[in-house]
Design a protein around this nucleic acid. Structure first.
Length: 756
DNA sequence: AAAGTACGGGG
DNA sequence: GTGTACGTACTTT
């Protein structure tokens, strides 16, 4: 039998791998492919021979062979024992046992998930186009992969999608009393009745037969709840095609990444059908399904798995593949300790990106110039990789500035090789995003390029992690050292051409020269790219940009608190309330309302003229707060827990709200979010200060003065430059009649405009 | 005043 | 089965 279509899923079974193929007509086919995965041991030949004898005595069916493979760091050919396991289901137990037992031998290529190993071995990848021929038992005889992970214009399969979500606000439904389930499919939306919910879902699965069940809160709440209901009613839900799959565990994972704790709920996979929980997937959240598919194709991680992993795992998977393809042994875990450095050297090296202090206040006609993918480009162009830094083969190689490390001149590093593919694909997607034929294809290209952007960001961070498989702190330090050097040179270059530096941050410059047209900045970008050797682009010209001072010390600028308006009318906000995810929606709304007014101003003078109107907006918003008319949803503070609710030392709002939920039997893990409303922020008894959003009842009323204060602060952020502080705003509004400093001009008896 | 906790950045 | 920076804002004690 011949089948052609998209490779939908793959997972191990006793005879090899189960493959699911989705054809053009939307029909799903499964087959098995023989597969016998291998791993390696390295070390002295004598010991390898002993190990070979030991393997001969185990009951597990396998085949061993003494061969030679390349050692990753030295690039030398070394003796290795290849162990091929007959039954893939024996692979993990055996490698685990070997890992526990060996001490003088070094295991290699032994901890890579089997679907990935299979994909690398066969050249298949998730969603590749595949033609297979099967025998009568559904066993794969021949196959052909018809496209490549490097393609940028690949077709998607025709997917029937069933969306499931809980009605109402999109906060964790596990925090509140149950509400109704909504199913969306085929352009229809239906409310599932509670009494017949299991039958209705089974009917949907049978009749509509979705390929993808796309949920919100499916992993953490929705699917477990339905499975629990099914157990109670002794029914089965037909999520899986064929035999039922296994749950991956009951507890989620909390881990620390990029300065914060994240929580990933346990993965619930289906067989012959995908389950993707949008809420539980960083990649889907950031880059949509197209971003997810893009990363699955590149990293060769199956769809349901990749939906729950970090982009670090993706980039790591891609590096693994490059290493395996080039016949390297993949190190089990990092061998090397960080090379010795003196305290003085550490001080020089251990700095991140270069940060300047912006010139405080409002500036007109400021251009922003950004280096595109600065760190990945540096890593690629300077050949920065764990095995190229201070290699043994090039003692006289050129040195990295400041750090004085050497970079290999003989071998192109694993990291640059991996990055090259990504940078090239991303560049093409950015072109498609700009020049695509229609809005839909431009949006898809944007999601694909955004997924790749995250790979690039993580690739740099990953180099600096001490236990990364392919990490080396010296490569990380070299990247930032070169980055600082380049930014510094760029600064000097523009200053020499008469531009004033307003601000600079890692890979961006804000510069000013009155009367310079946008076209000149475009040209400057091109010149700079040539001079610096890495691409820098003109991001846009600000009509005006306002760098907000530090709250602790109003004399002091901070690098990441500013707002401005580009020539094209687009706003750019950083660090202010409207941009922060923990600001209540009401505060965000009012600040955005004010920004919408400022957006229409072409000059600083125009901004000043609009101040009375902004004060009117503020007064109206304060009145509305005072009247008690603002709905609770608008006042919710959304926070991410950094730890277990019971381990908090201080009674801060996150601790209080999460403990309130705990007392109702709702357990939150580190990294999960909690929603709360201020009730009486000054209360002596902590639990009276705030209330978890899902526990609010009719007796509650919000803390007017707390929210008023937040509004005043949000207004101050916008108007500080014009002399309006929280105190002055409060004083002025209390008297109902704005008193202004003489230097601001007077509009004493102007009536307040009240927005409708 | 010191210490605890949380957020942004990347596009 | 990830990839634990770093500076600022704000709160609690």
């Amino acid at each position: 039998m011949q089948i052609s279509g998209w490779l939908f899923d793959a997972y191990p079974c006793a005879r090899g791998m189960v493959l699911w193929v989705l054809d053009e007509a939307g029909q799903m086919h499964s087959c098995t492919s023989a597969y016998h995965p291998v791993f390696y041991l390295t070390g002295p030949v004598q010991l390898l021979k002993q190990a070979r004898d030991w393997f001969a005595t185990t009951k597990i069916q396998l085949r061993t062979e003494l061969i030679e493979k390349r050692e990753f760091y030295s690039d030398d050919l070394v003796p290795a024992l290849e162990i091929q396991v007959e039954n893939p289901l024996h692979y993990i137990p055996l490698t685990q046992r070997v890992l526990r037992q060996v001490n003088e031998l070094e295991p290699a290529t032994c901890d890579i998930p089997l679907p990935q190993l299979f994909f690398i071995h066969t050249g298949m990848f998730p969603l590749c186009q595949l033609a297979v021929s099967l025998d009568g038992q559904g066993e794969l005889q021949e196959f052909q992969v018809l496209d490549s992970p490097e393609d940028v214009n690949y077709p998607y399969p025709p997917l029937r999608t069933l969306k499931l979500r809980v009605e109402g606000e999109n906060y964790n439904p596990g925090h509140s009393r149950n509400s109704s389930l909504i199913a969306e499919f085929d352009g229809r939306e239906i409310l599932l009745e509670e009494e017949s919910i299991l039958d209705e879902i089974n009917r949907l699965l049978r009749n509509y037969d979705p390929h993808l069940v796309l949920t919100q809160w499916g992993d953490s709440f929705l699917i477990p709840k339905l499975l629990q209901l099914a157990r109670q009613q002794q029914k089965r839900i037909a999520w899986d095609r064929g035999p039922q799959g296994m749950l991956k565990g009951l507890k989620g994972r909390s881990y620390f990444t990029y300065g914060k704790v994240v929580y990933v709920a346990p993965e619930i996979d289906f067989r012959g059908r995908w389950h993707i929980d949008q809420i539980n997937s960083f990649i889907v959240h950031e880059s949509g399904l197209e971003g997810l598919f893009e990363l699955a194709r590149l990293s060769k991680i199956p769809i349901q798995r990749i939906a729950r992993v970090s982009t670090g795992t993706c980039i790591s998977a891609m590096q693994l593949e490059v290493a395996i393809r080039e016949n390297y042994l993949v190190p089990y875990r990092k061998h090397q300790a960080e090379e010795f450095k003196t305290a003085e050297e550490l001080l020089i090296i251990d700095k991140g990106g270069l940060t300047y202090q912006p010139i405080l206040g409002l500036h007109e006609d400021v251009a922003e110039m950004d280096f595109a993918s600065m760190y990945p480009t540096i890593m690629t162009q300077f050949n920065l990789s764990p095995e190229t830094l201070n290699c043994l083969c090039c003692p006289d190689a050129a040195r990295v500035p400041e750090a004085e490390y050497r970079i290999c001149e003989k071998r192109i590093g694993l990291i640059p090789k991996t990055l090259k593919t990504i940078l090239f694909k991303r560049m093409q997607y950015k072109q498609q995003k700009k020049y695509g034929p229609d809005a839909v294809s431009r949006a898809v290209a944007d999601r694909k390029q955004s997924a790749l952007k995250w790979l690039l960001v993580t690739c740099f961070g990953y180099l600096g992690y001490k236990n990364a498989r392919f990490g080396k702190i010296e490569a990380h330090e070299s990247t930032t050292a070169i980055g600082r050097e380049i930014l510094l040179r760029a600064k000097e270059y523009v200053e020499a051409r008469g531009f004033q530096l307003i601000h600079a941050l890692t890979d961006s410059l804000w510069i000013q020269k009155p009367g310079t047209p946008a076209g000149d900045y475009e040209k400057l970008g091109e010149e700079l790219s040539v001079a610096m050797g890495i691409p820098i682009s003109f991001e846009g010209l600000f009509r005006w940009i306002n760098f907000v001072p530090s709250r602790q010390n109003p004399e002091k600028p901070v690098p990441n608190r500013y707002f401005g308006i580009y020539e094209n009318g687009e706003l750019k906000l950083r660090g202010i309330e409207a941009r922060r995810s923990d600001s209540p929606r009401y505060i965000q709304k009012v600040q955005k309302q004010m920004l919408e007014v400022l957006k229409e101003c072409r000059t600083v003078g125009d901004c000043r003229q609009r101040i009375p109107f902004l004060l009117g907006l503020l007064a109206a918003a304060l009145d509305q707060l005072k009247s008690g008319q603002v709905p609770f949803q608008e006042l919710v503070v959304n926070r991410r827990l950094s730890q277990d609710p019971l381990t908090y030392e201080k009674a801060n709002i996150s601790a209080i709200a999460s403990q309130q939920l705990l007392s109702q039997g709702i357990q939150l893990a580190p990294g999960e979010r909690v929603q709360l409303v201020y009730l009486n922020s000054q209360a002596r008894i902590p639990t009276e200060r705030v209330r978890a959003y899902s526990l609010l009842d009719g007796s509650c009323s919000y803390d007017v003065s707390k929210y008023s204060e937040l509004l005043l602060k949000a207004t101050e952020a916008l108007l500080f430059h014009f002399g309006w502080t929280v105190e002055k705003l409060a004083g002025t509004l209390k008297h109902g009649n704005p008193k202004t400093q003489s230097r601001e001009g007077s509009w004493g008896s102007l009536s307040w405009p009240r927005p409708s």
